[in-house]
């Protein structure tokens, strides 16, 4: 498998703070890599560096992109769903999704029939077919997240960068969005790099997980290897229990009361109750 994106020895300093230090990470074509880590670990900065939005030292390789200085060329390879997208007041869903065609049409050209066809197809695929004339700001949280995803998909990029795509959503909509991304990934061979706070969801939907802590990638591998009681305690400062489930590890936070009760019972190495 070729790497769709890879970073080597990535260093980012923002306002004198060393945010990322020697980060190495790669995502193969069609792979879904989740970047997890505590608040302030540098997850968003990592995505922003990939997008060329912050100055960096080190190497970023994007498959098929020779000249990284041209923003439009980069936007044809990488599509971005920000954590808190700016929703322009009064902009219609159709226009919002068509913004995703900007890197293909150029900033001065009108959208073509092909651009409109792509936008319509994506709106239909994301169950937003009847929403074209609605203002984006009038949508519910779940619909809005799909509209933002639709704009990113309209870029027809190979790699989808998702920054906390589920933060503002209830459980059902979290699941909907991630299932949708997963289905689209399989349909279109997309590579997905996402940051997620919910570790259980990260385990469910990621092929691989990388833990970012204090600006460094400290662990990387399949969910079952990375999501251990020890790693989570060390990097998140959280006390959890890990429940094995056929679909992947389930991370359950424990309370102080629960822990003292459990202390009297034998506990396995992995933190599971026998």
């Amino acid at each position: 498998m070729t790497a769709a994106v890879s970073v080597r020895a990535l260093d980012v300093t923002l306002d004198g703070t060393h945010v990322l230090r020697g980060v190495d990470l790669a995502a193969s074509t069609g792979e879904w890599v989740n970047v997890i880590g505590p608040n302030g670990a540098g997850k968003t900065t990592l995505l922003r560096a990939l997008l060329g939005l912050v100055p960096f030292d080190g190497e970023i390789d994007i498959s098929g992109l020779a000249d990284q200085r041209r923003r439009a060329a980069r936007a044809r390879k990488l599509a971005y769903v920000p954590q808190t997208p700016v929703i322009p007041v009064g902009m219609l869903v159709a226009d919002y999704v068509l913004l995703g065609r900007t890197p293909h049409r150029g900033v001065f050209a009108a959208e073509t029939a092909n651009d409109r066809r792509i936008a319509v197809e994506i709106l239909e695929r994301l169950d937003l077919g009847g929403f074209g004339e609605r203002a984006v700001q009038s949508l519910s949280g779940g619909e809005r997240q799909r509209a933002v995803l639709a704009r990113a998909l309209a870029q027809q990029a190979d790699v989808l960068l998702l920054d906390e795509p589920t933060t503002a959503l209830d459980l059902g909509h979290q699941q909907d969005v991630l299932e949708l991304v997963d289905a689209l990934r399989r349909e279109r061979g997309l590579t997905v790099v996402a940051t997620l706070h919910d570790l259980t969801l990260a385990a469910r939907y990621g092929d691989r997980i990388a833990i970012l802590a204090h600006g460094r990638v400290v662990e990387t591998g399949p969910p079952t290897e990375v999501l251990t009681v020890q790693n989570i305690a060390a990097h998140f400062g959280a006390t959890v229990r890990i429940v094995d489930d056929p679909e992947g590890p389930v991370i359950v936070p424990t309370t102080a009361a629960g822990r003292s009760q459990a202390a009297s019972a034998p506990i396995t190495q992995n933190g599971d109750q026998p």
Binding site: R48, L51, R71, A75, Y80, P82, V86, T102, F108
Partner: peptide, 23 residues
């Protein structure tokens, strides 16, 4: 008037506009 479409892209903010290929 030539930049009218670019201004529509800019409506999503500098960061997202840059991610959409705008300067």
């Amino acid at each position: 008037l030539r930049y009218r479409r670019a201004l529509d892209v800019l409506a999503v903010g500098d960061e997202e506009a840059a991610a959409l290929g705008l300067e």
